[in-house]
């Protein structure tokens, strides 16, 4: 008996297996479940949080500067007397929005460009691959810094800069899958029917090649949160007084030396938790694929 073919038949069937149970998933894949629970929590905070807070993130209150965490202000207040928990919650919306749009842009453009490179080969592949090499020779963060410095620092440019920085990974992953798939018999079969090349690439092959790039998405979300915060911290991204974790950390850093640790600490925790959430999901997805 050929074990390998039999297991191959078993694993994909898992996806629409009716007996697929969450209890089993929970037992076998702790990272994925923890990650998903955290993600649901984060999304709920981002959507509902701003409706529940009593303050406005921009409401200054001169009398309440630098108040330590207390029942009235759970995370304390900052130099202008703004309520930090309110700002952290409002920022969740913005930061998740940045992460999602950066990833979506990098994923969509990257996979399509990667498909072209892998499918057409030849000079198309040459040009794209060399460009990718050039982009990859810079650390993603430095690259994003350069782009925002060039384009100007506003929300839109931060998103563009970060997605350009992550795009090479998506291009490479999809290109490699496409190279494997372009000689697949079902692609030949489609050609025999008279399907056009572009359609074969986009309709037949791309959906089959996208797996690794999808898995890369969760990882990229984590990076995007971290790097967006990093850019703001350096003053190259989102600008104060916007409620954004990186901005808050950047402004709060100098307060640490004078003892007001909470202004930077809580947004920092928010970044850590969010990045961890996406990394846990990424680990979980990888484990799921290996099983």
């Amino acid at each position: 008996m050929n074990i390998s073919t039999e297991t191959a038949e078993v694993t994909p069937a898992l996806r629409n297996d009716k007996r697929f149970r969450f209890t089993r998933l929970f037992k076998h894949n702790v990272s994925l479940t923890t990650g998903l629970i955290l993600l649901i929590f984060l999304v709920l905070v981002a959507i509902l949080g701003p409706l529940l807070t009593q303050h406005s993130p921009y409401e200054t209150s001169p009398g309440d500067q630098y108040m330590a965490p207390s029942l009235a202000h759970l995370f304390g207040t900052d130099e202008f007397g703004r309520d930090i928990i309110t700002r952290v919650i409002h920022a969740a919306r913005l930061d998740l929005f940045i992460a999602v749009s950066v990833t979506a842009l990098a994923f969509v453009v990257g996979s399509i460009v990667g498909s072209f490179a892998g499918f057409y080969g030849g000079w198309v592949d040459m040009v794209i691959s060399r460009l990718v090499d050039v982009l990859l020779s810079f650390p993603a963060f430095i690259l994003a810094m350069g782009v925002t410095a060039m384009l100007g620092n506003n929300l839109q440019n931060v998103i563009i800069a970060l997605s350009v920085a992550y795009m090479p990974y998506f291009i490479r992953l999809t290109r490699a899958e496409m190279l494997k798939l372009r000689n697949a018999e079902f692609a030949d079969a489609a050609r025999c029917m008279g399907t056009s090349k572009v359609k074969i690439m986009l309709v037949h092959l791309l959906p089959n090649a996208i797996g690794p790039a999808v898995a890369q998405c969760t990882l990229t979300m984590g990076w995007a949160i971290l790097d967006a915060a990093g850019l703001s911290f350096l003053g190259l991204g989102i600008q104060a007084p916007t409620a954004e974790w990186g901005v808050m950390i950047g402004n709060g850093v100098r307060d640490i030396f004078s003892g007001e640790w909470w202004t930077a600490f809580f947004p920092g925790i928010a970044v850590i938790v969010t990045v961890m959430t996406f990394n846990l999901i990424a680990i979980g997805v990888r484990q799921l694929k290996e099983d």
């Binding site: 994909p12 018999e185 079902f186 079969a189 008279g194 089959n208």
Partner: peptide
Amino acid sequence: FRAYRSKIQMVFQDPTMSLNPL
């Protein structure tokens, strides 16, 4: 040539590889 495609067809060796899995 696309006009002739439907007239000349092919059955492939490995049915697992020749059908789009999705």
